[in-house]
């Protein structure tokens, strides 16, 4: 019986991640529209976009190698794989083993590698610029992320995601949550690190990297980005709230509510903040890293007493 459940569980989980993820950008856009007093695009806009892109033909640069198509596919699989590792409340991850948290982080790094590689295929200056920024800021974001998971690991004495996502006492949890929120904004290329809406190439990171993609590969890129956003929102929620300890129903509700709150928070940040100048981005990421580092030191020292 158990095997039958797990046999069905994997596709169900994957479907949930893949189908729910494109909601998030829609929610963010609704929040932004609400703050600005506009009506805004429909909640399901990204679904329509994806469906349309999937049917379109592709224009590929004459310079690009097949890696231009391979890159988005690799990035998408990496992000989806990372999502499968992510535990959902008390249900745990689809696959859980010691050290899976590092696999999750490095899968995200693989996605970054593939996206940046594909961006450089076209030989375009703008895409090079975007890729350069992505990989450079990724250094700080990854250090912050490792510090964050290390603090969770110290807190719980485990390196398995299922056991790790039990939040700490509140000063540490607040530090960790604010650090992770900044990392979320940076990794998902949101304001104040990057502006997903702008069409000024010089100021973009992620959008600049995917300028030349079209058709199904672009759909895959956009969908992967939304899955990544959902992944980070879930990670942030479970790292800050004791969702794993609630009853399944309550846990699911709490998780959904907190993901919604995080998403709305992103929308509010985008409504009330301006994008930072690029030379200030490292400073902000360093601050995020320090928040995670202090959470780590707190967790480490807290247990020593």
């Amino acid at each position: 019986m158990n095997t039958a459940v797990s046999f069905l569980e994997l596709p169900a989980r994957l479907a949930a991640w893949l189908l729910l993820a494109p909601l998030l950008p829609g929610i963010i856009n609704r929040v932004k529209a609400w703050v600005a007093g506009r009506r805004g695009p429909p909640l399901l806009q990204l679904y329509y976009d994806l469906a349309r892109l999937w049917r379109k033909s592709v224009v590929m640069s004459t310079l690009a190698s097949p890696g231009f198509i391979v890159g988005p596919a690799v990035a998408w699989v990496a992000v989806a794989g990372a999502a499968l590792l992510m535990p959902i409340g008390a249900a745990g991850g689809a696959l859980s083993f010691r050290g899976d948290v590092l696999l999750l982080i490095y899968l995200l790094a693989l996605a970054r590698f593939a996206t940046a590689w594909a961006a450089l295929e076209t030989g375009s200056a703008f895409e090079g610029m975007g890729a350069a920024r992505e990989v450079s800021f990724g250094v700080l974001a990854e250090a912050a992320l490792i510090a964050a998971v290390l603090s969770l690991s110290v807190q719980s004495g485990s390196t398995t995601l299922d056991a790790m996502l039990a939040p700490s006492a509140w000063p540490g949890a607040v530090l960790l949550a604010s650090g992770l929120f900044a990392v979320l904004l940076a990794e998902n290329c949101r304001v104040p690190f990057d502006d997903p809406n702008t069409h000024l190439e010089l100021t973009m990171i992620h959008e600049a990297m995917v300028l030349d993609h079209s058709g199904p590969p672009l759909a895959v890129v956009l969908h992967g980005a939304s899955v990544k956003l959902l992944l980070f929102a879930v990670l942030l929620s479970e790292a800050a709230l004791p969702i794993g300890r609630l009853a399944p129903g309550a846990g699911a509700a709490a998780l959904a509510g907190s993901v919604l709150a995080v998403t709305a928070g992103i929308g509010l940040v985008e409504s009330f903040m301006a994008r930072f100048a690029f030379r200030r981005v490292p400073l902000l990421l360093t601050a995020a890293f320090l928040l995670c580092l202090f959470a780590l030191v707190l967790a480490w020292k807290g247990g020593a007493q």
């Binding site: 224009v59 590929m60 310079l63 076209t122 058709g215």
Partner: peptide
């Protein structure tokens, strides 16, 4: 991509 059709053009940029 093959099914939808693939066209080569200079980098759009």
């Amino acid at each position: 991509v093959r099914v939808n059709g693939l066209r080569r053009a200079p980098t759009w940029d």
